[in-house]
Structures are given as C-alpha cells and as structure tokens.
Design a binder for these strands. Structure first.
Lengths: 196, 196, 196, 196
DNA sequence: GATGAATGAGACTTCATTCAT
DNA sequence: AATGAATGAAGTCTCATTCAT
C-alpha cells in the first residue's frame, strides 16, 4: 500500500474499497473488475483509491491477502490433534465450505484469473507454506507418515471440489458436503501405495 | 466459423490459428490472448483470422471445442467395463494427465477464464453430459450405486488435482500420479456414508 | 449523454466537441467524421469524448439535435399570422438561408448521410411534426385550405433549393434568395389544381 | 475503366457489376456498398471486379454515369418546344418521377453520399451543363427570359421534392405528382421579381 | 482471364492512471 | 487529502486492394 491509513476515516475508506473489490470480483469476475468500478461501488473517488493503492495489482494483492487470511483462520480452527478422523474430516469440510459461502466466486477468480505480484501459489510462498502445513500435519497425524505430495494432492482435490461446487451454485447442498467428507476421509485413511 | 476452409492451404491456416491460440492461452493466459497476438504467432495476418472466425469469442469457442474433444477421446479410452478397479483408476489417472501435458495451462484458462458463447459447463450441456456420464458409469460399476453427486465430486476432485499440478509444473511427477490414482480408487471404493 | 457536464470546464469541452463535429461534418462530410478526428479538432483526447458520448452514434445524434433545434428556432421566428404573403415568404426564405450559412454542408450530411438512432425523418417523429406544422399552418393561412401533402412538397422544395445552393457555394447570393422567395410565394398562392 | 470489355462475356460481367452496385446503393446505401458485396451480388469474383475497375471510386463513377445518362434521356424526352406550359410541366413531373422509380434511393446516394472523382455537380461539368440547359430552355420558353439562376433553382426544387418523396416512399402517390406539377408550373409562370 | 485467400491500415472503443482544482 | 475530468496506449474488427494459383 502506498500509505498506511492512520485515521479512522482512512481505514474505513480502505475497508470500503477492499469490500467493494471483493464483491465485484465475486459477482462479475475479473473482467468486470475495473478500478473505476471498484471506486464507484465503494462510494469513493478514483483518486482516493490511488492514494492508498499504487496500482491495480496492489489492490488485487490486498484483496487476495485478506481473503487468504480469512481462509487460514477458518482452516486453523479445524486443526485439533485430539479429533477423531471422522470429526476432523467433517470439521475441515465444513470449514472449507463456509470459507467460500460469503463470496462464492471470489476464491476462484483470485487464484485462477487475477494476476499477482508475487508467486503466492508457489509451494515456497508464505501462504502456501502455512496452508500446506495444516494438511501435512493432518496427513502425518492420520496416515502415520510425512508425505508432502499427498498433502498437496489432498488440498488440491478439496480445492477442485469446492470451487466447482461454487461455480455450479451447489456449495450449500448437504450431498456435496457429505461427499467431500468422504473423499477427505478416504484420502487420510490411505497408505501411500494402496495398490501394492 | 465464418467460412469453411476447403483448400489445403486454408485448412493449414485455420490449424495454425487454433494451435497458436492454444499455445498463447496456455502460456500467457487469457490476458495475453489478443487476436493480433494469435494472428502474429500463427504467422498470419489479422484479416485472415477474421475470414474464418467472426469474432474473438468464436475463436475461443473453437479452441475450447477442440480441446474438449481431445479430452473426451482420451477419457473414453479409459472406459472399459471389464477392468479391475485398480486398473481403471490407473488408466483414468494416466488419461487425465496425458490430456493436459501438451498445453498444461490450457484447460484451466479455457474453463475458468475464457468467456464462452454457450454455458458449456452447465451440467445440462452436451459436453458436461458426456463427460459426467463416464464418471457416473464408473461410480455405478465400482460402487454399485447410481450417484450423480458422487460422480460430480469425483470429477471435480480430479480436476482440482490435475489443474493445480499443472500450475505447479508437477504434472509429470510420478508421485502426483500415484496419489491421484489413490484418491480415485478410494473414492470408488466408498459406499455413500462410510462413517455411519 | 453518458454524463451531464456540470462544471464550466466540462460544458466548454462538450461544446468544443459538438462544434468540432459540426465543422467536420460540414466540411469533410460523413467520411471524414471519425471520433479521433473530432477529438483532435476539438483539442481534446479521445477518452474525454467518450466520457460524454457513449458512442459515435450518440455524438451524431447530439450534433443533429442541436442543429435541428437551431432550425426550428429560426423557423418559428418567421411564423406570424399577421404577415402578408410577400412578407412571410421573404422572412421564411431569409430564415432558411441564414440557418444554413454557418455550416453550409451540415444539414445535408446530417439528414442524408449520417445514421441516426431514431427515425427522426419519419413524418411521425417529433421533429418532423413540429417542422411540418409550420408549413401546414402557412398553407392553411395563405391558400385557405388544409393540405398536408402541399406542405410536405413545399418544405421539400425549399430543402432542395437551399441544400443544393449550399453545395454550390451560392447560398449567400441575392439572386438565389430572390428565386426562393418567388417559388415559396407561388406555391402559397396556388389552389390545389391550378390547371383545372 | 481499366480495360474496355470487348467480348460478350466481359460486357455481361461489367453489366452485372454495375447493376448489382446500383441495387446495393439503392437498398442499403453507401454504407453497405462494399466492393466485396458488389462482387458477390453480381456473382463475380472480387478479382474480376478489379480487372475492370481500378478502384472503388471508378466503380462508383461508372454507376453514376449510367444513372445520369438514364436521367438525361428521360429528361430530353420531355423537351418539346411546342408543348403548352401545362403539358410541359405534367410531362416533366412524370419524367422525373419515373426516372427514380426503379431505384428510389439511388439518386440521392449517388449525388449526396458517394464520393466522385470529378466535381460533376459543378455547374461547369458536362452533365450539369446538359442538365441545366434543359431547364434554361424551358425557363426561356415559358417565362420569356433567359435566367440561369431561375433554372438552377427550379431544378433544385424538383430535386428536393423527388428525393424526399423517394425517402418517404411516397414517390408513386398521385398527390405528390400533382403538387410537383403545380410547383413547376408556378415557377415557370413567374416573372423574375414577382413582388415588385 | 478468373479466382478468392490473404493482407494490413485504420476505425471505434475501453480503462488504468494522472493531475489540476 | 479528496475529487473526478482528462489522458492515450492498446485491443477488436472491417474492408479496399493484391497476387499466387
């Protein structure tokens, strides 16, 4: 950000911009996400937007950061070493679904369409490290082995299930949640080479 | 298409355009996919492109159609009622991975970013019907029950795994394929409510 | 208009665009009337033009509307029930000529070449209604009969005379004005079937 | 024309092009008049069109020339020194109307929109000389005076009446023809300064 | 001669960004 | 600090014209 908002008014302004941007990205996708549209939706002048974000990329990054923080918060809540596998899978599925219910399209747009300044999806990035750590811990806990790739694949499978359900408007359907739980559970019950 | 290419030269030209478009979509994403860039990469004038495609959307549709046809062809090959679950899962994983190896980013861009004239990802569309039918058949065969949602979730999980692996450049790694096989197999071995 | 200009600068900008557009249409015709040319002639960027006019057609309509308003204003001034036929014809001729002196080619281009969003030249359009009403009133007054077609033909004859004189650069010649007065007067002096 | 067609086939080809061009100009206006459209409508390849016409302007000129020749032919037929004023006016009106019935919009498009290589509407041009000569002769005959401007104004009034009637689709209405006759007759009955 | 695929200059329009007020 | 009018590079698409077959 170009400058840190210190006063209450400034913080509210930045908040309004981020929220307006998230909503536009979610509803209209990357194509409808123009800086002028965001400013207008936020009830702010385009000039003010550029006071706090040097360019469109910085704005996008800020929206993404906020969204990923939300996701991590929700994900961490589902981490509890004392849970049974069933309870863990149920909690994780519930957490992932609820994290996407507010802006169903946002996650996909931010991760698939929107350009990013840093390669935050690289396995070495801060976010991905923290995100994957949760899954690696769960794999270690329930499968009894450290397996980085298995954690990656599990998180990717969940990602695909949730993001496609969101696109189809099926995110809230109990059947989807039930199947998601089943897939997570099955993945965690596996040893690495089940076929041998 | 605006005009059907009849002569050999025309067919080669259309082929060059489609190939150049696929490559650009794969490597540079939707943002780099400009009609002028496609024409230039194809070694063709922009006017020639518009002789065969009435607008950018039609070009996008044509590239997508060709890609989906390839995917369906590969998918159908993996369908064989006589296969054991292990063999089926292995064949399916191999098929999905190989379908994405040529243009790793293409699938994601075409399905997530590129606008389409018809809603081909609607569950009622011709493509999605055919695509899901394969998964429904497999679920019925190996889980012994018809379960539309389970088929949907399985195909979405595979989609997530393959598309994220492609983004990370891990599509060719044997470990990924092994885990993909495991997830497919686990999903097919499930009864609907494994926890009850 | 996309935006209503509120500040003095904006109004001047819109004014400059309309004036530049009118001049280009008048001098170079529809073929030279490109949005970039209008912006450049107005000393304004192309983006500014599009802030106020959503597309080329809207700009054309605005220029036409302004011109037609000018014409109607000038025409209404010549309407005075107390005038003698001679005085009326003289006033009308003077009015029509002066309405075209500023941009001699504009009228023809706007009415014959430039596409319009609505069919303003349809006899039922608001403008044509008002315009023809003046001529119908004059015909009724001086010929003593209501005759819609006669009014139409009179206005068309004047149109032809003025617009061809403009093209020939003869609009300011006294002889043309004299003959125009004569034709108007003769038309108003007629009974419908003068030969029978 | 680039080359003179000598053989029967060539003459038919040129004929087809001119006719197709006239029809397109009449029906779709200058905007729809593209060289490719003309060639296609004529059932001829675009290359063949360019064999006989070096560019679009030459094609336009040829179509115009043919149309003006038709007009002159029809106009000359109405010239007969022995006619009474009434009979002359009736014949002239009939001639002008019938000259425009085949392609009602063509005349206007050719004279107002289509660019021309030479300034054929300049009073000094060959066509205008011949055309105006007819009107000057009539003015001299029936008004008993040589008056170039009166002839010009009369021909322009007729032009306006006919061309606007064509646009309104009223060209065939008897009332229009009757009023046209009346205007012509009144113009020819005038002395130059009727008001003094 | 005839064909029509190919060319590319140029038109319309959008939107990220700046800067005078 | 805030505003929003203004900018102009860049993208999509058309159509007059050429030239290899």
């Amino acid at each position: 950000m170009r400058k840190t908002p210190r006063q209450a008014r400034s913080r509210a302004l930045v908040e309004a911009i981020l929220e307006a941007g998230a909503r536009i990205l979610s509803v209209e996708g990357w194509a409808g996400f123009t800086t002028n549209a965001v400013a207008e939706r936020a009830g702010v002048s385009i000039g003010s937007l550029y006071q706090y974000f040097p360019d469109k990329l910085a704005l996008t990054d800020a929206i993404r950061q906020r969204h990923l923080d939300d996701c991590m918060a929700v994900l961490r809540l589902s981490q509890d070493a004392a849970l049974s596998p069933d309870a863990f899978a149920a909690g994780l599925a519930r957490a992932m679904i609820s994290a996407h219910l507010k802006h169903p399209g946002l996650h996909r747009v931010l991760l698939d369409e929107a350009p990013a300044s840093s390669d935050y999806r690289n396995p070495q990035s801060v976010f991905e490290q923290a995100y994957l750590a949760c899954f690696e811990a769960a794999v270690a806990r329930y499968r009894g082995e450290a397996n980085r790739v298995a954690a990656l694949v599990l998180s990717d499978a969940i990602d695909g299930i949730v993001h496609n359900a969101a696109r189809r408007g099926m995110l809230a359907e109990p059947e989807v949640e039930r199947e998601l739980v089943a897939v997570v559970l099955a993945s965690l019950a596996l040893r690495t080479r089940p076929s041998s």
